[in-house]
């Protein structure tokens, strides 16, 4: 399995990463080398093997009761942008114009 430049750009878009020119040049061969290393594994016949799900199945883990606690106000100190008690983020949804939609 090898990846070309177009595939690298597609994955970068899915991963929400902007790549530099150097990264776009280096990643196809670097990632293809790593994928080639996986070939020994993907070609192995494991038809009758159950995939591992979680270590927690084997361990004694008890669910605790859900308790309401106070949140720590110092969390706000790390907010990128604050207005009173609110975290301000860039606009997530585009403005929907009903009149435009009718036309």
């Amino acid at each position: 399995m090898s990846l070309n430049k177009e595939e690298i750009l597609k994955i970068a878009n899915l991963a929400k990463l902007e790549l530099s020119a150097e990264e776009i040049a280096a990643f196809p061969s670097q990632l293809s080398d790593i994928l080639a290393y996986f070939d020994k594994l993907t070609s192995l016949n494991l038809k009758n093997v159950e995939p591992f799900i979680s270590e927690l199945n084997q361990q004694k883990v008890l669910l605790r009761t859900d308790e309401v606690g106070a949140s720590d106000a110092s969390i706000k100190d790390q907010f990128v942008k604050v207005e009173s008690d609110y975290l301000v983020v860039p606009q997530v949804l585009a403005r929907f114009d009903a009149r435009q939609a009718k036309k």
Partner: peptide, 18 residues
């Protein structure tokens, strides 16, 4: 994410996403 992560982080994020 382009300016915050190193090349190695990006490489591994790319691989995982793929």
């Amino acid at each position: 994410r382009a300016t915050g992560f190193s090349a190695e982080s990006k490489r591994r994020i790319m691989l995982g996403t793929y």
